[in-house]
């Protein structure tokens, strides 16, 4: 079974521009924790993005680079002061370079309970094909 699933490369994209330029928004940027798994027909990307809903997400596919940006809202209770902090408040950003074996038109994204799910269907050629053998 395993050798039927053809590996599709998903590489973390290093953006050299990030190192020389600065963002305009004055907020930290975090790289969201990500799981990626591959099934026979698609590649599934799961990202932990607490505080993010469908309105605060920005997903762009430019050439072969898929960039996910999210701008979560944070609760700042009135008349309270922050006494203890384990997580910082900031945006999420991460990009991946897709191989040509992904069907770009078929990419689907959904966000639920602060987890972004991206479904990247494999293009026809990368899908395992069964060849039936006729008796004869």
């Amino acid at each position: 079974m395993t050798d039927q699933t053809k590996t599709i490369e998903v590489k973390q994209e290093n953006l050299p521009a990030e190192q020389t330029t600065e963002r305009i928004r004055d907020r930290r940027v975090y790289s969201p924790r990500t799981d990626i798994y591959e099934t026979a027909n698609e590649l599934v990307v799961l990202m932990d993005m607490p505080g993010v809903d469908e309105k605060s997400l920005d997903i762009v596919l430019e050439k072969n680079i898929l960039t996910i940006k999210a701008f979560p809202a944070f609760l700042h209770p009135e008349n309270h002061s922050l006494a203890y902090a384990e997580y910082g408040e900031g945006d999420f950003e991460r990009s991946f370079s897709l191989s040509s074996e992904i069907n770009r038109e078929g990419i689907e994204a959904s966000v639920k309970l602060g987890v972004l799910t991206l479904r990247l269907p494999k293009a026809g050629a990368a899908k395992p094909q069964k060849i039936s053998v006729k008796a004869g």
């Binding site: 932990d48 505080g51 609760l75 006494a83 203890y84 384990e86 997580y87 602060g114």
Partner: peptide
């Protein structure tokens, strides 16, 4: 995000009470 613990928690206080938030997605 370098957080060794899950879920990461923040706490806000004033003299009437405390508000604790925890990031537990999914």
């Amino acid at each position: 995000r370098v957080t060794p613990v899950f879920p990461a928690m923040n706490a806000w206080t004033n003299e009437d009470g405390e508000i604790v938030t925890a990031e537990i997605p999914g």
